[in-house]
């Protein structure tokens, strides 16, 4: 059992419903989840099961209809939009399936992007971007534009962008969904390294069992309910 201080993400009684054409659609229902600090968790489930919704709630992109979300001791479900934006800028690194790099910026400038919101000098921004790109093995592609990179390289730049401000948490939504097997393996190995060597807490949504197997723990979401699988054993 984890000590209370070891829990980075604590969700209690999370319910999320959407109004669609006057009808209430319940995506998540009374869901509890604890994610220990420094863990690598995978979130699996069929399409429409609410994986991305849950990830958005944890990342502070959305608010629950009911329940509480505590990230690193801060109740983010209570935060205003402006405070949530600051929370995301300082505490969350995002990795998207389609990389979402800005095509008009070079790799280094894309990595610098989150630092524009922090009081960091231009030279320091540049230095940190270089460091982040070195971590993902793309130091020699700093001045390349996204169109000049392969899919795997683009995703590594996106990972560098996610870690450049040293966030508490990395959220990855299908990070290998658009990649071939070899590139996907490289990205998963990189995520493992970030988790094991740098102690980053990672939550990854994936459809791919092979990708999920690289995580320390796999959470299954189905019909708004969570079950956890650790070492091949599923617990409701």
């Amino acid at each position: 059992m984890n000590k209370p201080d070891d829990i980075l993400i604590r969700l209690r009684g999370i319910t999320k419903t959407y109004e669609r054409g006057g009808e209430s659609l319940c995506i998540l229902e009374s869901l509890d989840l604890d994610v220990p600090r420094g863990s690598f968790a995978a979130l699996m489930g069929p399409s429409g099961s609410g994986k991305s919704t849950l990830l958005n709630l944890i990342a502070g992109l959305d608010k629950p209809t009911a329940g509480t979300i505590d990230i690193g001791g801060e109740r983010i479900d209570k935060l205003s939009e402006a405070r949530l934006a600051k929370f995301r800028a300082s505490s969350v690194g995002f990795i998207f399936q389609s990389y979402n790099l800005l095509p008009v910026l070079t790799a280094a400038e894309n990595v610098e992007l989150p630092l524009l919101l922090a009081p960091v000098a231009a030279s320091e921004r540049r230095r940190r971007a270089q460091t982040a790109l070195r971590v993902v093995g793309l130091e020699d592609r700093m001045d390349h534009f996204p169109r000049q990179l392969s899919g795997g390289q683009e995703q590594r730049v996106a990972i560098a962008r996610a870690i450049v401000n040293d966030p508490l948490l990395l959220v990855a939504d299908e990070p290998t969904g658009d990649l071939d097997r070899k590139s996907a393996d490289e990205i998963l190995t990189l995520l493992e390294t970030l988790n094991e060597k740098l102690g980053k807490t990672i939550i990854m949504v994936t459809h791919d069992p092979a990708a999920a197997a690289r995580a320390g723990v796999i959470h299954h979401l189905d019909k708004g309910r969570l079950s956890v699988e650790a070492h091949g054993e599923v617990h409701a």
């Binding site: 990342a59 934006a85 995301r88 800028a89 995002f94 992007l113 989150p114």
Partner: peptide, 14 residues
């Protein structure tokens, strides 16, 4: 639209 969404996600304000 999607770039703006990405920027909002990583902390840019409206």
């Amino acid at each position: 639209t999607q770039e703006f969404a990405t920027m909002r996600a990583i902390g840019f304000m409206p």
